[in-house]
Nucleic acid binder design. Structure first.
Lengths: 109, 109
DNA sequence: CGTATATATAGACACCCGTCAATACACACT
DNA sequence: AGTGTGTATTGACGGGTGTCTATATATACG
């Protein structure tokens, strides 16, 4: 995960560079799956969530698939993980999400 | 295109419903491609853009591929089209983009 | 009408992705 | 140490997607 703190001015501000487009598109693609969106929403609305405890049953997909999606979210830097005993807890990374929100945010409207 | 004006409370507010997840994920998937992101950025930063005039050359992909991406953006309701003479002009749809921005917006951060 | 240009479509190809069952791994608790 | 449970990985399958070339359609201009 790159140390990107400031990235990608709003799309409407200036034509986005290829590099930034790749970066942003990667994040959006991660959000482009209903299962991941529901997982992220579950995590965010609880503030923190454990995979088996809070996530597998509600989304209604198999445990390996949940694990896969959580990995994708994690590697995109949209959630962070903390292992506590036998369980792994996930929390959202608001800074990352803010980058995306700001990129498509319409200051001209 | 459905008449969705109000949709999808912020992800962190409450666990998102399956239907909303499908809807949102569809829009994010559209943004999940660098070429489409660059096209949208070019359109948005100019306020309006014509495919051949302003888009084909800057993004560096073939005309049919540009046409395809514009169709995807259009059918997602992220841009609107207007045919003027031989040309087709595209404009962003800020309300749609605002929905996405608000969905991932972090009120808790 | 014919030609030139802007746009869209068709078809093909390679590649990526979501899902699952099966299995492996990690960690606590007795 | 052994067992049970949470988590991750593997391998496979089906479907979707981005890209291209070639071609078709539409519109303006002479």
């Amino acid at each position: 995960m790159q140390p990107i703190v400031e990235c990608c001015a709003p799309l409407a501000e200036e034509p986005i560079a290829q590099v930034d487009a790749d970066q942003l598109a990667g994040w959006f693609r991660v959000l482009g799956d209903p299962a991941r969106l529901r997982l992220l929403s579950l995590i965010a609305s609880k503030g923190e969530a454990c995979a088996a405890c809070d996530l597998v049953e509600p989304v209604g997909i198999s445990q390996p698939t949940v694990s896969h999606h959580l990995k994708v979210l994690y590697e995109a830097g949209l959630v962070e993980r903390e292992k506590r005993g036998r369980w792994v807890y996930y929390r959202p990374v608001p800074e990352r999400l803010a980058i995306l929100s700001r990129a498509i945010g319409s200051p001209g409207a």
